[in-house]
Design a binder for these strands. Structure first.
Lengths: 342, 342
DNA sequence: TTGAAAGCGATACCAT
DNA sequence: ATGGTATCGCTTTCAA
């Protein structure tokens, strides 16, 4: 209880100096004689004084904090993301506010409210309305992560479309598969929308008729198990299942194996992300590697830079992906095992 | 840029009233005539005024924020935890600060620093030194989550020891297994420490000699795959693998299946948490259900209540678990499929 | 009902 | 080098 209540004024009184001097000493700014510095330092030490953050922030006109807004936590993807962001922010001395908009109707208001408590924000693509992003962006620096900016704010992302086109082409061309199905909801997030677009583009590029529509499900492993249950039931099953992320793919794999099917002989399965588990299952998963942590760290760096104000205005960034060919697509063990840029 | 810079004073001037009146109107406190209220509301509306959070917090002596400190994100457990905490906090109008101590040496200092920016904190058990918890607790309300408090702060947890004893007894007694091995690092977190203790207690309770030691690994699915690789190699393999959480168990299952072993015929496998995937794999996982989200929500409620100050001082809480018998332990399909309290 | 003014805790300018 | 004081934006007595 005690140590928290003590202020600059107290220390100044106790050390027999002015508050200005205390401030100078505690911040290391300005010139202070050795004598004074000692007196102040002693008082600070003795009473465990630490300047109050609110007072300091008010005077500085800065919160010393950045915010991260995401739809909800699900799986390794978000975990990586948050860690990447947090790590970078904390390193720069900024504290991290988070907000899950997950299924809350008033989330736009909450996002705006957060905008009043931080110096800058990173929003995951598709979590808040474009209009909200626009309003926010005229107040504080905003960076979009894995979304499509619609000119409202700089975006940090990968080229989902191209990556998915590359993966789908591999299935279509190298393995001659034709009855592919895409698992994931294109409307669920910009990422998935772009991947679905890339999936379709591969078909178009080869002049073959694409499947009617995606299997719209969530993005977690259990969703994949359920989707597999649906897809692999009848005799007319697909010859390849292209999943919007690795978690879904892992779930589909579990579901397929659980039904006694052989992968990739009976059905090929692919993912996206290259999560740690992807390499460890049997058969190991063919997927697309994206630098999730680095994406988040880069977004953090960008807002932090924008908050700092100096330097060129921040611009969006596109980070590279790798096509990771393993065995779940049907490639033999002697096929290239490591990634090639796409 | 524009709308953010406007202050109470501005509004007061524009509406031709005093700042006190503006404050009263914008907070709905005190008595204000309809005439004044209209004038102020108009000005506020017209200029999009929203009171600055720092000024307000400084005057109130409150941050309106709570912090959550965890070691690092890994898997569904932490995701649930964060969401449970965040959801409860935001509902109470508090913003949420997070800090991952993960592998950072100066984390104790950072935890203390966070203590200056929030009104209360929840710390995951085992993330910071007892001494740090103690120092923090004399400044702001602190609640421990899934840890052992050592009298420094109230703890919200489940009875890991009893739950794991129940599960282990089931393996030992019902299935007559004897060569069990525990996978997980008891020193990694208080939770795992308690589960290991419960595992040992089951042996002691039956007077049979427990295995020498745990297989110390991380807590994620890939760690389980690796552990399985180790354990199931030779001819002297265990007849049951008791995992510290479901993720490990899922990994071990994948590893076992990948080696062509049959579960539970060749080896039984159990988990802890009852993650969504646990029910969906083949065979479905025998495990212990713990209310992760509720644990975090309860911790949030406790710290929020403590911050609020009124009411009885907060005390620790132990939430119930359920033993969930499925098939991975060797139980047949006609065995009880749903949980029984332990 | 309304307004003037005193904080909240810290910083920084301006004299000295 | 040091101290006095205005300032940051808001809330809240205290008078009127």
């Amino acid at each position: 209880m005690g140590s928290s209540r003590i202020t600059v004024r107290e220390i100044a009184r106790l050390a027999g100096v002015s508050v200005a001097t205390v401030s100078r000493v505690s911040n290391g700014t300005g010139q202070v004689s050795e004598e004074m510095r000692r007196r102040v330092l002693d008082a600070i030490e003795k009473h465990g004084y630490r300047p109050d953050h609110l007072g300091r922030a008010l005077a500085a006109g800065r919160h010393g904090a950045v915010g991260l807004v995401f739809p909800g936590l699900s799986g390794p993807y978000f975990a990586e993301l948050i860690q990447g962001f947090e790590s970078e922010a904390v390193q720069s001395g900024a504290s991290v506010h988070i907000l899950c908009t997950h299924l809350r109707s008033d989330s736009d208001a909450q996002v705006l409210e957060m905008g009043r408590r931080v110096d800058g924000m990173v929003l995951l693509g598709g979590t808040v309305a474009d209009e909200t992003v626009r309003r926010l962006a005229e107040t504080i620096p905003v960076v979009l992560l894995a979304g499509s900016g619609h000119e409202t704010a700089p975006v940090v992302r990968v080229d989902n479309t191209a990556a998915m086109t590359g993966l789908t082409r591999h299935l279509l061309v190298e393995h001659g598969l034709r009855r592919l199905v895409f698992v994931g909801d294109p409307e669920g997030s910009p990422d998935v929308g772009q991947r679905w677009a890339g999936f379709l583009a591969a078909y178009r590029g080869l002049g073959v008729l694409p499947p009617v529509g995606p299997v719209r499900v969530g993005m977690q492993q259990p969703d994949g198990v359920l989707a597999a249950g649906h897809l692999l039931r009848g005799p007319e099953r697909p010859d390849g299942i292209v999943c919007a992320n690795d978690e879904l793919a892992l779930g589909v794999l579990v579901g397929a194996l659980g039904r006694g099917l052989l992968v990739p002989r009976d059905v090929a399965i692919t993912g996206f992300d290259d999560a740690p588990m992807a390499a460890l299952v049997s058969p190991p998963l063919t997927t697309v590697r994206q630098p999730v942590r680095e994406l988040a760290a880069e977004a953090a760096r960008l807002v932090l830079r924008a908050v700092d104000g100096r330097g060129a205005p921040v611009e969006g960034v596109v980070l590279p992906t790798d096509l990771v060919i393993r065995a779940s697509c049907g490639c033999g063990t002697d096929a290239p095992a490591t990634g090639q840029p796409i």
